[in-house]
Design a protein around this nucleic acid. Structure first.
Lengths: 207, 207
DNA sequence: TGCTAACATGAATATATATTCAGTTTGTGA
DNA sequence: TCACAAACTGAATATATATTCATGTTAGCA
């Protein structure tokens, strides 16, 4: 928990705190950080403007609080699903699928994480650096077992994050246009990861 | 040119206009859209605040103007380089390499394009939709020639954009930490695209 | 040299909104 | 039932900054 946040102690105060958090999720998503005012948040939460400052010292700290809770949540969800699979191949498929479904069901979270690049660059950087680190670990284990080819695992992790994030972006942007067949999309991605994009060209030593 | 922008006519006015544009590039990059004020721009350009409004009706229109010019520029650069290559394989390698080098040399452009998701969602969406459309065309030609495998070209184009953008992101975030060996990074990416990530697992019909 | 239109100025205006604070209500333990 | 702290209120404050406008300056031409 952010050190500057004052935790509520009584039952009523806990409800108030939660109402502010919930309102913030909704409004930050809908209108972005700069597009939402403290008044938007407190109105939606049904409390007075001053009440906000009983718990949070500033709008920025609230944003950071929400961002951290989001990123924790999305990582937990992916880790839980992935750990149930045996092979790296199956883990990868599951991770991509989970991420896309997450983006589809709660586009707000996804959106808020990207916006952080322009609100709190450190937090954004840390989020992806940490994500990459976990990814690397998994990839290196898989390489040690001979499940995947030996390639720079840092670069590979950004390749995989890039694919997942952009496919998620596409799905979110297309929301409501009926392109939500996640399995079909994941199949295409796995085809590429499994066999490559290119048909064999010239000699296999390449150019 | 944006219809609300008033073009300068005289030699001096052209210089003033250019100075405002140049200042805006720098400052938008450095501090983001919300972090820069009209005063920041006009101070850096060496003109009075009011002068800004001789040419641009608002800060938003200036931002849109700059974003469009950036996205035009980056696409032009990639298209020019790619068109010199023969095979899809070589074109892909060149496109990725050009994009990363672009991000490395002018991180501001790259940065501004992503921020647009939170400033002008339509413009952002259009930018990527258009990028994807061009990509699709190239991929479909390559598929017709048998250079690449037949897969949903829309999904493939987002996979490739995702890879490129995230590798670009990594390179920009790491700037100054000596990880700027673009060729080595591109090689890893091409390895994956060429031969896949996974070693052959079980039977090739897959799961 | 004087005229005119384009160009430029920067102080003043208008507005938005994050944050404060003096006062009020509420719940709880004695 | 009282006392007190915690919780809450919302009008007032403070600040930032996009935009306007009355006024001045310049360049080129008759």
């Amino acid at each position: 928990m952010h050190p500057q946040i004052k935790e509520p102690t009584t039952r009523n105060a806990k409800n108030t705190f939660k109402a502010i958090e919930d309102a913030a999720y909704e409004v930050f998503y809908k209108n972005g950080y700069h597009g939402t005012t403290i008044a938007d948040i407190t109105n939606r939460a049904g409390v007075a403007a001053g009440t906000f400052y009983l718990y949070f010292p500033s709008k920025l700290v609230l944003y950071q609080h929400i961002l951290m809770s989001l990123s924790h949540d999305i990582r937990k969800e992916i880790a839980a699903k992935v750990s149930r699979k045996e092979t790296r191949y199956e883990k990868e498929r599951e991770g991509i699928k989970t991420f896309i479904n997450y983006a589809l069901e709660r586009p707000e979270m996804y959106n808020i994480i990207w916006e952080s690049l322009y609100i709190d660059r450190e937090l954004f950087r840390d989020y992806y650096a940490d994500f990459a680190k976990r990814y690397k670990r998994g990839l290196e284990e898989a390489a040690a077992k001979g499940e995947i080819r030996s390639l720079d695992s840092e670069v590979v992790s950004y390749v995989l994050m890039g694919i997942t994030n952009f496919i998620g972006l596409k799905v979110v942007m297309d929301l409501g246009e009926g392109n939500e067949n996640v399995d079909a999309i994941v199949n295409v991605v796995m085809e590429i990861l499994d066999k490559g994009l290119f048909k064999k060209h010239r000699d296999s030593s390449g150019k």
